[in-house]
Design a binder for these strands. Sequence first.
DNA 1: AGAGCCATGTAAAAAGTTACATGATTCG
DNA 2: CGAATCATGTAACTTTTTACATGGCTCT
Lengths: 192, 192
Amino acid sequence: MKYRKVMVDGMRTLKHAILGVINREAMTGYDLMKVFNLELVNFWYAKHSQIYPELKKLTDEGLITYETVLQGEKLEKKLYSITEAGKEAFLRWLSKQDLLEPTPKDIFRLKVYFIESMTKEDILKQFHYQLDLRKEKLEKLETTMIEHPYARIISDVISPLYGDYIVLKGAIMRERTYIDWLLECIKEIENC
Amino acid sequence: MKYRKVMVDGMRTLKHAILGVINREAMTGYDLMKVFNLELVNFWYAKHSQIYPELKKLTDEGLITYETVLQGEKLEKKLYSITEAGKEAFLRWLSKQDLLEPTPKDIFRLKVYFIESMTKEDILKQFHYQLDLRKEKLEKLETTMIEHPYARIISDVISPLYGDYIVLKGAIMRERTYIDWLLECIKEIENC
DNA sequence: AGAGCCATGTAAAAAGTTACATGATTCG
DNA sequence: CGAATCATGTAACTTTTTACATGGCTCT
């Protein structure tokens, strides 16, 4: 017996991420791209080649609309804003309780799993290289924390900035732990 | 002017993960599936529907070979082992220095970014739910650590078990930090 | 005999990346 | 005026997931 194919769509996380960002403030696809790859980059991101088709799809679904505005003389840009239906879809997604996602993949950890196949020299070289990259990244995150007006918000009211602040805090904690792990590994490997 | 399409293949991480596992020990696709989804699950994983085609591809590329063995009377299984070319490809991949990968995506962090759109009650409910799930996961990892014969290997020689041990240690540290972050968030949110 | 696991595949779709493609604006 | 950035798209491909599909083995 043959079964019917069932059309199921996936999580559509990008869809909801876009709705959430546009819900904060109307913007163009280009703006959205920058928000994803600068502000949200520590937990979600997307290339413009994924964003533009998704904006079209969301428009077709009636969850967002756009207004064409002129930048200068000729350049048309599309300023997207969320619709009532879009707001509802976003809030529905937001309040849904999710199970744990699968642990994120990590190529470096995968390589470390195969450590026995490397020479001690190569192992240490690789660990130190990763350490340098991670330290650099952590510094950037810490600079962002210092330079942003988050500090005054801590333990204060719930404002849009509060979300920015706690996810940045989480990113810093995560990066510090990665570095701690690298340091512990290096120490153990050096002593053998 | 039209440009020629360039055939580029991607990172092929699954390819190298499979080579690495088979390099440790010859096994079937089914065994491989279990290794991925039980042992490596904290940094890499794959469904059987991805593994079987990849095994075929690697066989065609001459990086692995198989021997058909019988399980019982009729059931044929394919026992894969790595070839010299496979070993070389694996070691080349292993010793290559990689730049940092993009930060892993995380739907819960994404939702937290949008925290201003939730009620305090809903926020706390969601945080506590995630906390329970994460604690459960951490306990499992800690149990694995205790039950495995890793402890005796610490600061000892480089053996296959050493890779298992340090990645598990990293997974535990990562999970603890996630929990710490959730706890800090909950504390801050409750006090406002 | 039936449940649960062992064992191997393919098809279709979703999600994401890289490359192709074009043109306007801004600022030094 | 040139470089960087703003701005919007499509095509081709890789990677991953979900569903379809089948059948043997083991243990109770």
